[in-house]
């Protein structure tokens, strides 16, 4: 009896470590984005004779994109609630829905990119477009990593169900996904909204 209690206590401590470590990681990632944001703000006017932000962005399109991501984040939150209630099937459905919305977001982002590139406004065009593509694509890359993680989690939940370890991983995943959501809000505001003003 005593033994299992101790083992449990140890497990909790180690969960605590992982969560704390993950928060620090998120902070460092946040700083990578902060650097890219800083660069974007500096480079915003460096259009090199090319188009500026208010000529390029299609706000309604990006708004739909944003809604997709926000919804996926919301569902991701529900998924964690389901996981805490040990509702395995609900978790899988939640993960799939999160993933589908995320995929939709990525598809829209890629559409926007390919549209810009086909217009001749690729990242090589100007300092501004360089900063724009890098910032948004870095976020997109994170979303892609998140999607990969999500697939792995679907596999894992369907194989082993909701163990304490799985629950922790799901919680961390949702942290990551919410974090990307917050970053996107900043991108939406600083890049797109201020961009079309």
């Amino acid at each position: 009896m005593n033994k299992t209690k101790e083992a449990l206590a140890r497990r909790i401590v180690s969960d605590d470590k992982v969560t704390f470590g993950f928060w620090i990681y998120l902070m460092t990632d946040c700083l990578i984005f902060a650097s890219l944001f800083a660069v974007y703000v500096v480079q915003r006017s460096a259009t090199a004779g090319g188009p500026s932000s208010n000529e390029l962005f299609d706000l309604p399109f990006v708004l739909v994109e944003t809604l997709l991501l926000l919804t996926s984040s919301f569902i991701c939150g529900l998924m964690v609630l389901a996981a805490q209630a040990h509702r395995k099937n609900l978790v899988i459905i939640g993960l799939i829905a999160t993933g589908l919305l995320g995929a939709g977001f990525l598809a829209m982002e890629l559409t926007e990119f390919s549209h810009l590139i086909s217009e001749g406004y690729g990242w090589q065009r100007s300092g501004f477009l360089t900063a724009f593509f890098t910032l948004v694509a870095t976020h997109g890359l994170h979303i892609s990593v998140g999607m990969l993680w999500l697939f792995v989690m679907i596999y894992r939940v369907s194989r082993v169900g909701i163990t304490p370890a799985t629950l922790r991983k799901l919680t961390l995943f949702s942290l990551f996904w919410h974090f990307l959501d917050v970053i996107w809000i900043f991108i939406f505001t600083i890049v797109y909204m201020i961009g079309v003003l």
Binding site: A48, W123, G127, A131, T134
Partner: peptide, 13 residues
């Protein structure tokens, strides 16, 4: 890939 963050032309800085 030819971005222009730090190049001296095309708006790099």
């Amino acid at each position: 890939i030819g971005t222009h963050f730090f190049t001296s032309d095309m708006g790099g800085n």
